[in-house]
């Protein structure tokens, strides 16, 4: 079954078209990477799909629910980790996780169970009592990701999840994302092409709000006639598709 299906999804800001007639389909349980240079429309696409901004025209369906007419149901089924770290700085890590459980209406027992699970999965147990604002960037990202996952989302949006992290923290976070594959449908935007190639089931490359190419990493390389994915990305963005 399709987890996400967009139909001519478009977003205009005054005279700028941020996303222009996007048509794509993402299957349940797959990791889909949305790539592109800055200003390509990746973040705007994620904002529309997560009901943060309304499309100017077109629509998208998440597990069959429209993002324009069924936002309450969409908000129940998604998790979002925004580009910037989004934690409550004066709350402890545990309180941040409890906050997300609370806004999703979890019972006390379920809260405790989910916090135990996520703490173990993300290695947060030793820092549960620490204030989130005092943690390093890498740990804040982990907490941010755990907050997105604690509601047991069917679809998870990760907007540049490793932005600003050092090599080690990035590698650790990619391991966490890799472990989620297959269990949750993941939509990922990133500038790290190698990692996107290694992790993604399918990849879409955007430029100026349009989807230039869609396929597996191998299909995209074949369509550009190059061996390295980075070269294929550059060729696609430069309009050198076969």
């Amino acid at each position: 079954m399709d987890a996400i299906m967009t139909r001519s999804l478009t977003k205009r800001y005054k005279d700028v078209t941020a996303v222009d007639g996007l048509d794509l389909t993402v299957r349940q349980g797959e990791l889909f990477s949305l790539l592109g240079v800055n200003g390509a429309g990746k973040t705007t696409t994620i904002k529309m799909l997560s009901c943060l901004t309304r499309p100017t025209s077109g629509d998208a369906f998440l597990n069959g629910h429209s993002i324009t007419s069924d936002t309450a149901e969409i908000k129940r089924m998604i998790g979002v980790s925004p580009q910037e770290t989004a934690v409550a700085p004066n709350l402890t890590v545990q309180e941040n996780l409890e906050l997300m459980c609370g806004v999703h209406g979890f019972s006390r027992e379920k809260r405790a169970q989910k916090i135990r699970e996520l703490s173990a999965q993300f290695g947060l147990t030793p820092i549960l009592k620490k204030r989130a604002g005092k943690l390093s960037g890498g740990w804040q990202r982990r907490v941010s990701l755990a907050m997105a996952l604690i509601s047991e989302p069917e679809i998870l949006f990760l907007d540049e999840p490793t932005l600003g992290l050092d090599v080690l923290a990035r590698s650790e976070l990619w391991d966490v994302i890799r472990a989620l594959k297959g269990r949750v449908t993941i939509i990922l935007t990133t500038h790290y092409l190698e990692e996107a190639e290694a992790l993604s089931d399918h990849i879409g490359i955007m430029k100026d709000g349009r989807l230039l190419v869609l396929g597996t990493a191998d299909e995209i390389k074949a369509s550009t006639g190059v061996e390295k994915f980075e070269d294929a990305f550059i060729a696609a963005v430069k309009g050198e598709l076969r």
């Binding site: 908000k75 998604i78 998790g79 989004a86 997300m100 907050m147 509601s151």
Partner: peptide
């Protein structure tokens, strides 16, 4: 932004 994507 994160909280706007929740049922709040």
């Amino acid at each position: 932004q994160r909280l706007y994507t929740t049922p709040l």
